[in-house]
Design a protein around this nucleic acid. Sequence first.
DNA 1: TTGACAATTGATTATTAATCCTATTTAATT
DNA 2: AATTAAATAGGATTAATAATCAATTGTCAA
Lengths: 153, 153
Amino acid sequence: MNKNEINVDRFTQLCKAHGLKVTPQRVAVYKALKKATDHPCADKIHKQLLMDFPNISLDTVNRTLLTFARIRIIDIVEGQGDPRRFDPNLDEHHHFYCLSCNSIIDFHDPELKHIQLPDEITRSFTITGKRLCLTGYCARCRNHAPDKVTAVG
Amino acid sequence: MNKNEINVDRFTQLCKAHGLKVTPQRVAVYKALKKATDHPCADKIHKQLLMDFPNISLDTVNRTLLTFARIRIIDIVEGQGDPRRFDPNLDEHHHFYCLSCNSIIDFHDPELKHIQLPDEITRSFTITGKRLCLTGYCARCRNHAPDKVTAVG
DNA sequence: TTGACAATTGATTATTAATCCTATTTAATT
DNA sequence: AATTAAATAGGATTAATAATCAATTGTCAA
């Protein structure tokens, strides 16, 4: 099976394992996020799904995404205070966040796999996620807008 | 000068260098954030300042913080979609984010100073920030709430 | 020191995001 | 097919952020 195709059976298993009903909405939300590579927010997924589900509510999409995050089949992405965004990719990877266009770009690096956390940290806390977060300006933006924050006050 | 004291002259310089007026509100917001170690949101700073400035508006606090971030004398902290939070500390450091109580805890590690980014990344993008972001459960929370997200789907 | 000017403020209003509520529907099980 | 607990849609509500604007205030040049 292609990595980007969705295995509905597997998804059904995961839901059952967590006592969740397998609803058409949940399948649709899961499929839509799994296909996405842009770390979409709930509203974006919702707009997409409206094509096929004219009645699906934003609240359902949002709740569903939060539920998926809770059972750890998707991730919530770190952001700069904008709408919450989601990540279908649970494999170890890192993020570059463009301060101008807000795009989030994945990157990998074999070197970074070996980042060793301080003992003190692993002892004090339960770590569920580890990621290198870069901020800056993407190739397209860096020649244009110097920055995004427009408030002058 | 103690690192946690605020050098108003220096602050004044920074403002002038960016064509910003030095208002009492700005000085107060700057002082309040510089003293903070909990990566507060605008609302928290505002509530604090109300003691001394009964009339200061939340909007002014928020605008001021965004302005400071724009001229890079403070940072916006990466978060999970909650209210935007700010960081007075511009030195290289890393964050642990508790998914249960939302506290953000700084940590340092000499090893991590030497994280080498892939060439492809530094070539394609302009990097303004680099941080290791950990998520998980802090010492106090890990024995209690299994997680924060309460939506059930 | 003063006056002019442009930036900043606070109040108000608008917008957007996230969550809550409830009647209705539906998936899962018998 | 009937039962039941869970999930949904849709509207309402709260909270956060942003925009607008008249009044105020820092800055700078005279």
